[in-house]
């Protein structure tokens, strides 16, 4: 039997394009969020690395290594 009129399938078309745009939008958003998080992580790690590798922090690290358990001494003096 031949179809006399074109069926109204516009709801399926709208559903299809909605799905396509939502999936693409979510993917682009995920790329954006991951990129932002990595930028933050990189900044934080750079700050940490610079703080650890700076000469002042190295000196402090060296001093603390030479002084064995300073807290215990002060506690025993008080007693």
């Amino acid at each position: 039997m031949l179809l006399e009129t074109t069926p109204d399938t516009s709801a399926f078309m709208i559903a299809g394009y909605t799905v396509a745009f939502v999936v693409m939008g979510l993917y682009v958003a995920s790329l954006f969020i991951r990129n932002r998080n990595l930028d933050r992580d990189a900044e934080m790690l750079k700050t940490l690395f610079e703080a650890e590798s700076s000469p002042s922090s190295k000196k402090e690290a060296g001093k603390s290594a030479k002084k064995p358990a300073p807290k215990k001494k002060s506690v025993s003096k008080k007693k």
Partner: peptide, 16 residues
Amino acid sequence: PTELVMGDVQRVFYFH
């Protein structure tokens, strides 16, 4: 143009 037998749903074919 709208496809005569399937109607508007045929338009998803381009993105598909």
